[in-house]
Design a protein around this nucleic acid. Sequence first.
RNA 1: GGAGAGAUGACCGAGCGGCUGAAGGUGCACGCCUGGAAAGCGUGUGUGCCUGUAUAGGGCACCGAGGGUUCGAAUCCCUCUCUCUCCGCCA
Length: 427
Amino acid sequence: MLEIKYVRQNLLEVYNCLEKRGDTADLDTFEKAETARREILSEIEALRHKRNVVSDEIAGLKKKGKDAEEIVAQMRDVSGRIKVLEKSLTESEEKIQEILIRLPNIPHPSVPVGKDEADNQLLRKVGTPREFEFTPKPHWTIGENLNILDFERAAKITGARFPLYFGAGARLERALINFMLDLHTTDHGYTEVLPPFIVNRKTMTGTGQLPKFKEDLFKLEGWDYFLIPTAEVPVTNIYQDEILDESQLPVYYTAYTPCFRSEAGSYGKDTRGLIRQHQFNKVEMVKFTTPETSYDELDALLDNAETILKKLDLPYQVVVLSTGDLGFSAAKTYDIEVWMPAQGKQGKYREISSCSNFEGFQARRAGIRFKRKGKKGTQPVHTLNGSGLAVGRTVAAILENYQQADGSVVIPDVLRPYMGGMEIITI
RNA sequence: GGAGAGAUGACCGAGCGGCUGAAGGUGCACGCCUGGAAAGCGUGUGUGCCUGUAUAGGGCACCGAGGGUUCGAAUCCCUCUCUCUCCGCCA
C-alpha cells in the first residue's frame, strides 16, 4: 500500500506510474473522498474536544453536588452530531481504502518502462546450453518413460495440473528441497522457517494477494482461510503488526512450502508437464531490511538464487522486469530463467525464480515497522523475497538438460549425496 | 465437542464509569557514582492521525476486534476473534 499522504501529495506521479504499468485507478474519487475526509475529521475533532472539556466540567459540578442537567442536555446534542459525522467519515474512509488497497507499488526509477514481458531487459546469460547429438525430449516424456512422473493418475486423483512423482522422481524433488535449504542456511545466512500453508484474509492482504487477485487463490470452504500461493505470504507476515528494533535488521528467512495457485486465466498455457501446476513445491527466501540497504540486499538475494543454478550447472539468464510486467506489490523484480532445451521448437528460457524488492509497500499493509535508536517514531521496513528455487521447474530443467539418448537422466553432482549416491536415473 | 479463565504500552503487570495515555516493574537512552564494569541513585522513554513552513505548538484517537449504553467507557452490556486450563476425541 502507498501512504495516503504520499498519494494525496503526489497524485500526478501516482497517475504516471499507473500508466507505465498499464493499470488504472479512480484517483478523482480518491482525491474528493480524501478532501471530504479531512474536512469531516476536523469538525469531529473540534466537537470531541468540546465534549471532553465539558465532560470535565460536568464531573466537577457533580462532585460539588450541583445540578448539571442543562449542559448535559447540550452535550446530548453534541454527541448526536458527532455520531452523524462519524458515519460519513467512515463512508469516506471506506471509499479511500478501496482505492488505496488496489493501487500498485511505484516502480523503482531503474525499472525499464515497457508494455509487457517483451520489454524486459536482459541482464546476463550464464552457462552454455548443451549441444544435443539427438533431439531432446520434453521432461514429461522423459519422466513418464522413466516411471517417475504420472500426470494421468494425478488427474484421476485430483484433476489437471497436479503432480504425482514416484521413486527417483519423488526423491529428486526431496533432494532439491534439502539441497536448497542446506545451502541457504549454511552458506547464505538464512534461518529456516516452516510456516502454516493456510493463512487468513489479513495475511493475504498484507503481502498484496488480496483483495485484487482473489481469483488466483484457493479458498477453503466454510473458512475465511486460503491456501498459500507462495511462502512469501506466511513468512513476510511473521512480523505483521510488530515494531522491530533497528538492531534486529536485516532478518533472513528461508522456507520450503508447497504452493497452491488456481492459475485462472491460463487455460491452454503450459498444459503439459511440471511448468504450470496448481500445486508445486518451492524454497523461498525472505528478507526484512532497512530502506538504505534493500537494493544491495536484493542483489545479494538474486546472487543466492543464482548460486543454486550454478551449482546444478544449469544454464540461465537474468532479466529485469519492465514496468508492464512488474507484479502488483513489487518496486523492482529480477527474473531468473532457466534453459529448457525441449520447450518450444529450439528450447526456451523459462522463469524459475523471481526476486523482488517491495520496499515499504507490503510493510505498510502488514504493519511491519522498525524503530531507530534515538529517533522518534517508526518507519516501515523494506521486505524482499525471491524463489530459491521453484522445485518442480528445477526437476523439469534437470530432466531436460541432463537427459541422455537412451532416455536416462544423469543426476547433477551436488545432488548425489542427497540421492543416496545415485548417479543416474534409468528405467 | 463439553466446562472454565483471560486478552492493557518494546516486554511484564495494576486499574474495573469522570482525578488514567494509563500506577509499578523490566528493557532502553542520558547523567551521577567507578580505575573500568556491575550494583546503586537521578532524569527521560508509546503509536497513529488532523492542523502547522516546522524533529515548535495545538487537537483527536487508540487498553484483542466490532457494535451498544452514557453528558462521559480500559472500566458496564452484546457479538466475534485469539490464547490458556481441565475433560473427551485424535495424527
